[in-house]
């Protein structure tokens, strides 16, 4: 008698979200089974990796980032173009760090100017990230959304304190939205409900469940992603079916393991390689948990992850 392979049946489907316009637009999501369980259902679209670019040079940076980006710091438009043309980037994520009120405190109009320049330099999809301070992001992302009108960007991150402003700006300019919650799937569902109550379409939302670096809470992020995906697929919970974005670049490059030099920790090996590996390992874990969009920094790490995806999507 033939052995019958047990397969899980799912009732839900991950929403598809398209970012960008024209030939270079990218669509993520669409899975009807857990990540890479193509034997149980549709695997959906290939996850998308976006290169992080910054609107001003960082104060200090780990070796791997410095090696890759030193020549591009200070000119985000040129940097974005380099990612597109030289690295075959599928998307870029512009982080408006200069708007941080505790830093340079650049205004919304400066941010809008940067967004325009970057968009003029590329035709791949753009993710626009604020400085992650709720009140300021409300102002900055509104201006950025206006400046990016018609380019179908993904903007964020919308949180409890600023979601109304950002959602309104996204709707009126035709953008998609990142809904952020701090490692809490109940709150993730809540922010999606609140967004839909403002009239925002659930199909235009991407969930950011909070990224954590390997060794710094990665397993918590993993569980939250799993729980969200299970609610969407198994319980067919419409509020938990948006694709997920993991902002790895914002967490990986802050940890000791990617920063401590060989003079301090010779037994840990080459610091640049260490950084690359750290980001790549974190990224692959997030993909197996269920991430659809990754924001990453190291080109070598991105290449390694793309190669892994080639295998996983076969």
């Amino acid at each position: 008698m033939a052995v019958e392979i047990l397969k899980e049946k799912y009732t839900g489907k991950v929403n598809t979200v398209t970012i960008g316009t024209g030939d270079k637009a990218m669509t993520v999501g669409g899975a009807t089974a857990l990540p890479f369980h193509s034997f149980e259902g549709e695997a959906g679209n290939r996850p998308m990796i976006a290169y992080e670019i910054l609107d001003m040079p960082p104060e200090d940076s780990p070796a791997a980032q410095k090696e890759a980006w030193d020549a591009h710091w200070g000119d985000p438009a040129q940097w974005a173009r380099y990612c597109q043309n030289e690295l075959s980037a599928k998307a870029v994520a512009l982080r408006l760090v200069s708007t941080d009120p505790d830093g340079k405190n650049a205004g919304p109009e400066d941010a809008a100017e940067t967004v325009k320049k970057v968009l003029a330099a590329i035709d791949i999809p753009l993710i626009i990230l604020g400085c992650f301070k709720e009140a300021k992001d409300g102002q900055v992302l509104k201006a950025a959304a206006d400046a990016a009108r018609g380019r179908n960007c993904l903007i964020g991150k919308a949180q409890e304190e600023n979601y109304k402003t950002i959602a309104a700006a996204a709707i009126s300019n035709g953008h998609k939205l990142i809904a952020f919650s701090n490692l809490d799937f109940n709150l993730s569902k809540q922010i999606n409900i609140l967004l839909t109550q403002t009239g925002f379409n659930i199909n235009d939302i991407v969930i950011d469940p909070t990224a954590s670096a390997l060794g710094y809470g990665l397993e918590y992020t993993y569980s939250v992603i799993e729980r969200i995906r299970a609610a969407g697929l198994v319980q067919n919970d419409a509020m938990m079916q948006p694709p997920m974005l993991l902002d790895l670049a914002s967490v990986v490059w802050k940890v000791k393991e990617v920063k401590a030099g060989e003079d301090q920790l010779p037994e840990w090996g080459n610091v640049s390689e260490r950084g690359t590996h750290w980001e790549a390992s974190t990224a692959v874990s997030m993909l197996t948990a269920g991430a659809e969009i990754l924001v990453m920094s190291s080109p070598k790490a991105v290449q390694a992850v793309e190669k892994t995806l080639d295998q996983l999507m076969k």
């Binding site: 569902k189 409900i193 319980q235 509020m239």
Partner: peptide, 12 residues
């Protein structure tokens, strides 16, 4: 446990 909790779960 059949529907995920959120504060506004009654509204969806």
């Amino acid at each position: 446990g059949e529907i995920m909790y959120a504060h506004s779960f009654l509204e969806v």
